[in-house]
Amino acid sequence: MAKQLVVRLRADGTVDAESIGMHGSECLDHIEALEALLDAETVSSSFTDDYTSASTSETTSLDAEQSDGAP
């Protein structure tokens, strides 16, 4: 399976991201890059039961509002 980072931008300015086909903490590198691109930080995250297996996926919510509070 190809590695994917599925990103959803919500109307309230938050971003949901889910990594697919990544192993272990590999997904965290991609979330870190997404945070840098969006000038955002993770406010909550959860790992599936398969986190340590070959079919690991992760869901992370990011606060994508700009630092000045603009939507």
Rank of each mutant, 00 (worst) to 15 (best):
E58H: 08
T52H: 03
A33K: 12
M22I: 00
T52S: 04
E26Q: 13
T59P: 03
K3F: 00
E18Y: 03
E26P: 02
F47I: 10
L37E: 14
S61I: 06
D39N: 15
S46Q: 14
S45Q: 05
T60K: 02
D12W: 01
Q4P: 02
T14S: 08
L5A: 07
K3Y: 02
M22K: 01
L38A: 06
T60N: 07
D49V: 11
L5Q: 05
L9R: 11
G24S: 10
H30M: 08
A36T: 10
S25Q: 09
S53M: 05
S45T: 08
G24W: 01
E26F: 00
S19I: 00
A54C: 09
S46E: 15
E35H: 07
S55R: 12
A40W: 02
D29M: 07
V7D: 00
S46I: 07
D16S: 08
E41P: 01
A2G: 06
S55K: 12
D49Q: 11
Q4K: 15
L38K: 04
A11C: 06
L62H: 07
M1L: 11
A36Q: 14
V6Q: 14
L62E: 06
R10A: 15
I31L: 12
M1V: 13
S44D: 15
T42M: 13
D49K: 11
E26W: 00
S61K: 02
L5D: 03
G24T: 03
P71I: 05
S45W: 03
E41A: 12
G24I: 04
A70W: 02
